[in-house]
Simulated scan of single mutants.
Amino acid sequence: MRTHGATVWHWSASVKAWFIFWFARIFIKPIMSWWPATDRGISVLSRLDRRIDKLLPRPRGVDIDAVTLGGVPGERIAPPRPATDALAGATVLYFHGGAFVFCGLATHRTVCSLLAAKSGVPVYSVAYRQLPEGSIGTSVMDAMAAYTAILAVAEDPTRVIVAGDSAGGYLAMKVAEIAALRGMTRPAAVIGFSPLLNLNLEAHDPDYMKRDAYLPMSQLEKLRDKWLDGPDHIEGAQSPVDADPGIFPPVFFSVAEYEITRPDVEIVTEAIEAAGRPVETHIWAGQVHAFPVIGQTLPEARALLDLGIDFARRAVATEDNRRTA
């Protein structure tokens, strides 16, 4: 492990992690590259979560209830034991990844359950609208509707932590940005696992971008027009990389060494650090994009979840000390 400023490098990777990396590179990436980024192809992917929901067993040790937040369907995952430390009274609002095309409550139920169990706080996971039902602007609207509703039902609205992976990390950062722009109660912290922070990914070195284990740049470039082709405007900056870094609450990022989101994670990390705001970023060798989502089977993923929760705990405690000072 090596620390440079706000960035921590992790060089060790388990045998299981390397197996997942090369399995994704050899088998998953060709399938992703071949899959048609047409309306029909997207519609098929959009039904993936419903199919997985019928196949996967529900996580044990947590209570899962269906909820609606601001008209957005979701789930509330309650931990077996409530937190008694600085996170007591906190709430996590989680946005799943999936390139604004696929995944949902079922695909991310395990990581949300682990977050709830490890932190001792309830985790709300929301099924925001995606392509082909709506563009990114629509997804952002749903995310803000869910966040506004969370502020009304959370035990302590000043202790709401917004989190997400990939596209969900984009939404978590947009919620923090828009809440600041609107003068709302801001999130206590943001946790982003391989967050998508720039919709213009083609701006980076194409040779590096090809090294992602399973995400093909060619497909994401095809999706970009669809991401932005919708009636709902994206409030604030189109990409979080272009937002004012000084308005963000404490931010925790993680990213794999070779993945398409890393360049912008590093850019935003440096910008937030330069603005004097708390930020902590972990770069991990031998991992795939959004690897914490498979936290039940991967030791590095479980370790990273613990790091993110500890960061949120410190952020909440620091804010409490500031208020009482």
Rank of each mutant, 00 (worst) to 15 (best):
T3V: 10
V8S: 01
W9E: 09
W18N: 10
I26K: 12
I28E: 08
I28K: 05
W34T: 04
W35I: 00
T38S: 14
R40H: 10
I42L: 00
L48C: 04
R50Q: 15
I52P: 02
K54E: 00
P57S: 05
R58Y: 06
R58Q: 14
G61Y: 05
G61Q: 09
D63R: 15
V67S: 08
T68P: 02
G70E: 01
G74P: 02
G74I: 00
G74M: 01
E75Y: 09
R81T: 15
R81W: 10
P82M: 08
A83M: 11
T84V: 13
L87P: 01
V92K: 01
V92S: 05
Y94D: 03
G98M: 01
A99N: 00
A117G: 11
K118W: 00
K118N: 05
S119K: 03
V123A: 03
Y124D: 02
P132E: 13
T138Q: 13
S139N: 01
M144D: 01
A146E: 00
T148Y: 03
A149D: 01
A154P: 00
A154L: 11
G164I: 06
D165K: 05
D165V: 12
A167T: 02
A172Q: 08
K174L: 07
I178G: 03
R182N: 13
T185A: 13
I191K: 12
N198W: 12
N198S: 14
L199T: 02
E202Y: 14
H204I: 07
D212E: 11
Q219R: 09
L223V: 03
E235M: 15
D242V: 13
D244V: 11
S254Q: 14
E259M: 06
T261S: 10
D264Y: 08
I267S: 10
E270T: 10
A271E: 15
A274F: 06
A285N: 09
V288Q: 02
V288S: 02
A290L: 08
F291K: 01
Q296K: 15
P299Y: 04
G308H: 04
I309D: 06
D310K: 07
T318N: 09
E319V: 05
N321A: 13
T324Q: 12
